[in-house]
Write a protein that binds this DNA or RNA. Sequence first.
DNA 1: GGTTCTGGATAGTGTCACTATCCAAGTTTG
DNA 2: CAAACTTGGATAGTGACACTATCCAGAACC
Lengths: 203, 203
Amino acid sequence: MLISELAVQSGVPLATVKFYLREGLLAPGTATSATRASYDEAHVRRLRLVRALVEVGGLRLAAVHEVLAALDDPELPQHDLLGAAHDRLAAQVPAVDQAALDAADAHLARLGWRVHPQAPHRRVLARALAACTAVGHPVDPATIDTYARAALMVAEVDLASVPTTDRALAMERVVIGTVLHEPLLLALRRLAQAHVSARLAKR
Amino acid sequence: MLISELAVQSGVPLATVKFYLREGLLAPGTATSATRASYDEAHVRRLRLVRALVEVGGLRLAAVHEVLAALDDPELPQHDLLGAAHDRLAAQVPAVDQAALDAADAHLARLGWRVHPQAPHRRVLARALAACTAVGHPVDPATIDTYARAALMVAEVDLASVPTTDRALAMERVVIGTVLHEPLLLALRRLAQAHVSARLAKR
DNA sequence: GGTTCTGGATAGTGTCACTATCCAAGTTTG
DNA sequence: CAAACTTGGATAGTGACACTATCCAGAACC
């Protein structure tokens, strides 16, 4: 497949395909001559994945880069596939002050969740909690508990659906499950809010 | 309070406070002379809200504008406070093709959720589902059902925590609950994934 | 043999969220 | 009272980001 066909197939403008090649988000095709290269289905898939991560997942290209590096890394230990994906997805989360982190850890301890102390999402949690407090609407522990139960339900189906046989497929599933299912969950939450709200209004 | 004090109090650079005033994200202070104005606690609160929405909620300033307009609109009907907030939060979601929308509606119908056909989150859901399918990992209905149950749990505590007496406070709660609790839920989901993953590895 | 397409290089665009500078008018301080 | 500072308002500049456009010389198809 020529680069122009790749562009058409994937629905990505040619100029953008070239840009992704330059940025290393897409592997070069196999050169068939000095001025020609051929691309295959794998390139189409990769291109679609990049677009999905950017447009639906809201990732920036630097994050996409990290994710793709993880996908393509054959050295990545099978057992910490998820941790690797998470680290690469939240690498750029800014530092938070110790008090906020302690508050987040207190919740995690209450929930009985053992997570790696370097897990970047501890910081995300801490930031979110601190922000709610800062605007005068602190999150109460009972609310956290409900959110946590919901999160646990979701996490269980997420991990259950990861194939155990094919490593490459598992890796891809983890990434897609983590990134592309987020808007899914958020959309469902807002729709559920609308549903519950309508239900309440009817009574 | 002078503008320079407001900047210090809120932790926002003076140049940025001026910028927000220009953009209409912050109400002008009450002029005490031709070259002086005074600001109060309400300005500090508003400034903190704007920063939280931007930094933690990831909203762009145009969306913050919409949200603040809703917060400040005394005409807004009490009963559809949530709908108004949602519409303003997802106004710029691009259109999706009919097939994707139909797929999303099929799920909603199965769940028995009655939502307004103009709810912008139907489109968000449709986009997310379509993206998963496009990259070769379609979401199966059982997964959606679990996500939906989790979303419903969360939505119920969200709405239960909205005060019914103070309209202004209720409005603020809806906005904060919708926007600032999102990173909370996402962080908890990822932490839950790590927790479940560790639990599985131990066996 | 002329049009079309290639990879590679370079430069330009538009959006976004600030950030910096300047100003004349007014206020505080010594 | 004068020097130094601060004010609101206007205007312009910055830097990150994700493209998008143009140009090129050398193939390749027809």
